[in-house]
């Protein structure tokens, strides 16, 4: 508890010095994330959703001209419980107008090094991480090769899975544990099919990549950042594609956030944004093995 209190002070000091404004946005919203792999908790009495991250509301502030902003808040994800997951968790999210994702990676490294102690920083493309650990180019490998690797490394029996599911399996089960050993490892340029809310570009080898990054420390995924998508039409298409996929999988369909679309339409500045899991950061600071150890009352005791 003391560690957490001091952590928040340090974070607030860090952003104050850099003129990044602390903001607060609603935890309950009329819309929810359409992400196929996120399940929102619905508060039925209000017909509203507990937010899986403050992203949409913060982007509305950016479009309204807030300038650089950050927030420390709770986020909620249904069904996520485990050693590194609690359905209710604390997130630090911040946005930097005028930054691209490379500049933001540098700022994330500064903050994390300030909090965890100096470590060297390594940036590794998603492709290079796969090549180094598994010997395949993730942007070109076909499903058969990935099915074989999944079986060999994790005993996973593939069942008509798409390439992204197989890549996500190999990333989270095989590659992640090797990342961030005594250093901060940033993985960047994900397959375009895993773009979420990031801009897509073509990299030097001609592959379409999502301009996003994740930070790993001691095999723990700590942060996830984007060079933010600002195009309203593209955003609408991604919402629709998510909702189609949700329907295909028999998941609840959710209201797409029209207010975010309107904000993008009115113009959101070019910016990069990142979300960092503060409970996991505390785990690393305290040398804790489970997220339970750093949360006052974990979900089963809440």
């Amino acid at each position: 508890m003391r560690l957490r209190a001091r952590l928040y002070q340090q974070i607030r000091h860090f952003f104050e010095q850099r003129d990044v404004l602390e903001v607060e946005t609603p935890l309950l919203g009329q819309a929810a994330s359409t992400d196929v792999h996120l399940a929102s908790l619905c508060v039925e009495a209000e017909n509203q959703y507990l937010q899986t991250s403050p992203e949409f509301a913060m982007k509305r502030l950016l479009a309204a001209g807030s300038g650089a902003i950050y927030q420390i808040c709770k986020s909620f994800r249904q069904g996520e419980s485990g050693k590194r997951h609690n359905p209710e968790f604390t997130m630090l999210e911040w946005y930097r107008p005028g930054f691209d994702y490379l500049q933001l990676m540098a700022e994330v490294a500064e903050l994390v090094n300030l909090l965890l102690g100096e470590r060297s920083v390594r940036q590794l493309s998603y492709r290079d991480a796969f090549v180094a650990v598994l010997g395949v180019d993730p942007h070109r490998a076909d499903a058969d090769v990935l099915v074989g690797l999944a079986k060999r490394h994790t005993g996973y029996v593939a069942d008509g899975d798409d390439v992204d599911t197989l890549l996500e399996l190999l990333m989270s089960q095989v590659i992640e544990p090797t990342l961030g050993c005594n250093e901060l490892t940033f993985i960047y340029d994900y397959p375009a099919s895993q773009c979420a809310l990031a801009k897509v570009a073509v990299d030097a080898q001609g592959a379409a990549v999502a301009q996003r990054f994740e930070l790993y420390v001691e095999g723990v995924e700590l942060a996830n950042g984007y060079y933010e998508l600002t195009d309203a039409d593209e955003q609408l298409q991604r919402f629709m594609a998510d909702l189609d996929e949700r329907k295909r999988r028999g998941l609840v369909t959710l209201p797409a956030d029209q207010k975010l679309l309107a904000a993008l339409q009115s113009g959101m500045p070019d910016c990069a944004g990142v979300a960092l899991g503060l409970d996991r950061l505390l785990m690393l600071m305290a040398g804790a093995d489970s997220i339970r150890d750093v949360i006052t009352f974990p979900t089963d005791l809440a």
Partner: peptide, 29 residues
């Protein structure tokens, strides 16, 4: 163990004992 990448599909890494052979299997679902 619940394992989820930053974005994307969540998995469970499961250790189980085969009661016939006594061997411990590790499988991901």
């Amino acid at each position: 163990e619940f394992v989820k990448p930053g974005k994307g599909q969540a998995f469970n890494r499961v250790k189980m004992r085969n009661l016939k052979t006594g061997r411990v299997w590790e499988r991901t679902f």
